[in-house]
């Protein structure tokens, strides 16, 4: 039931395919089936345990909803991060309170761009033979203006610990 409610129609296009509706349906049927079989086999005490799990599990529904709401926003700005050994190249700026699409890719090996304060954590993947790989994205709504350092959190070579080696790699959020 909850999973069906989570599927928003505008979301599928933004995510590049894969609406949640199918998953919701499959999950609901599977839950009904497994739950039904399980409960019919169980004793009183085990049923109590099951209800306990259900209460804990239901805690995840609102959080999934919140995430989906954020991801289905229409972004106003786009910031592109291109990683290569050992630097991040950033194009574009974000603004406080405006939904921003953060895109990330790499040109040589796997990197990962991480800005904890903004909730950006994206694998930067390379393509074929030194080309840019598939774009990875996330939609964020920055809350605080400032200049944020991007840190690499995927091992990319000897100097991974000191990426970026020059002053680039700053993610700017304008007020």
């Amino acid at each position: 039931m909850f999973s069906l409610l989570c599927a928003s129609p505008g979301f599928a296009e933004e995510a590049g395919g894969g609406s949640g509706l199918g998953y919701g349906l499959v999950f609901s049927i599977a839950t009904l089936f497994i739950g039904g079989v399980g409960v019919s086999q169980m004793k009183y005490r085990d049923k109590t345990i099951l209800i306990f799990f259900a209460i804990i599990g239901s805690g995840t529904y609102p959080s999934v909803n919140a995430y989906m709401a954020n991801m289905s926003l229409i972004p106003k700005n786009t910031v592109t991060i291109t990683a290569s050994r050992y630097n991040f190249e950033v194009q574009g700026e974000a603004k406080v309170g405006e939904p921003t699409k953060v895109m990330a890719a790499a040109t040589d090996v796997t990197h990962a761009a991480f800005i904890k304060e903004l909730g950006v954590n994206l694998a930067c993947l390379p393509g074929k033979g030194g080309t840019k790989g598939r774009d990875n994205f996330r939609i964020i709504v920055p809350q605080q203006a400032g200049t944020y350092k991007i840190k690499c959190v995927e091992y990319c070579g000897e100097l991974h610990g000191n990426m970026s080696v020059d002053m680039a790699g700053e993610f700017v959020v304008k007020p």
Binding site: S3, V64, M71
Partner: peptide, 9 residues
């Protein structure tokens, strides 16, 4: 969407 449903459910 896949990520959210997978890790949520």
């Amino acid at each position: 969407a896949h990520k959210a449903f997978n890790t949520g459910y």
